[in-house]
């Protein structure tokens, strides 16, 4: 009686592994194709497509596509723009949103419940719903420049600023911090206050050190959104100077027939995210599982 059941469960397990591996192929092969094609000349990419050679580094493999794409596509300056936008958004966002969440979770003041309710309502308004009127708004905001003297320009269009400032304050980040801060026992604050700490010191030396994972999670969510953002720069950054990486890729893809170069661009644009994902994989997964259950 025992043996048939065991051999059946063994067969089921083999089947499960087969399905799991099949899905590994389904999810990984497009990226393998991208990376392999990026090292091959155009002719060979076409030739290899009919066989498994498309997924192997065979034939005339070289870095030529990378040299060409770096020389001609402007990817260098676009990557700098994206890096600057991502780092600024995350840096300012972590500070501003955690501080606001601290005021909501740890300080007592009138109107707190109302503000918290408003933030929850703001969670449901997607960027898509407000992007068009926001374009009109940022087209009439002032920027200070320096051109021999102080200059004021009345438009944020075509700047890096317009890709940073609107995304610093983030309702989701505030709410995420708020939930995490609420879980920290209040005894810690009280002990610090008894020792004469100010609220900012409590924030800086009690709450922040206890919330490393939360900060990492919020940094990943906001950073990924900033690096991959597409809709907003398509609307407000028409020219090349402040163009981010992903809009650059779309432009390059539309006006290029060199598949190898497009794949080299796509590989370079993915590399930073891929490295971050490999190293901080745990926090990426946590960011979704944590936010999904609570939110």
């Amino acid at each position: 009686m025992r043996r048939p059941i065991n051999s059946r469960t063994a067969a089921v397990r083999v089947g499960l592994y087969a399905i799991a591996l099949l899905f590994v192929i389904v999810f990984v092969s497009p990226f393998v194709f991208m990376v392999m094609a990026s090292f091959k000349p155009n002719q060979q990419i076409f030739g290899d497509l009919g066989s498994f050679r498309a997924f192997l580094p065979v034939g005339a493999v070289s870095l030529q596509n990378y040299r060409d794409v770096i020389a001609t596509s402007g990817i260098g300056s676009y990557a700098l723009n994206s890096a600057f936008i991502t780092v600024s958004t995350v840096g300012a966002g972590l500070f501003v949103n955690s501080l606001a969440a601290f005021a909501l979770a740890r300080l007592e003041w009138r109107g707190k419940g109302l503000v918290l309710g408003l933030i929850v309502i703001m969670l449901i308004i997607p960027l898509e719903a407000i992007a068009v009127p926001m374009m009109l708004l940022v087209a009439s905001l002032p920027t200070l420049g320096f051109d021999g003297g102080l200059t004021i320009q009345w438009s944020w269009l075509d700047t890096r600023l317009v890709q940073i400032v609107p995304f610093v304050a983030n309702a989701f980040s505030i709410f995420f911090f708020y939930q995490a801060f609420n879980d920290i026992p209040r005894d810690f604050d009280e002990a610090a206050y008894v020792d004469g700490a100010t609220p900012y010191q409590v924030f800086r030396h009690v709450i922040v050190p206890l919330s490393g994972t939360t900060f990492a999670t919020v940094a990943i969510i906001q950073g990924l959104a900033a690096w991959n953002q597409y809709l907003w720069p398509v609307i407000v950054v028409p020219s090349a100077e402040a163009r981010p990486l992903m809009v650059g890729l779309q432009q390059f893809f539309r006006f290029q027939t060199e598949w190898g170069e497009v794949m080299a661009y796509a590989t370079l644009a993915t590399l930073p995210v891929f490295l971050a994902f490999v190293f901080f994989q745990r926090w990426f997964v946590q960011s979704v599982m944590g936010s999904g259950v609570k939110g």
């Binding site: 590994v24 497009p30 990226f31 194709f33 991959n228 794949m263 796509a266 644009a269 993915t270 990426f284």
Partner: peptide, 16 residues
């Protein structure tokens, strides 16, 4: 591995 496409840019995915 199953989660990895989520973190990639939709532009990159669409191009591939």
């Amino acid at each position: 591995i199953y989660f990895s496409p989520v973190v990639m840019s939709m532009v990159v995915v669409a191009v591939i």
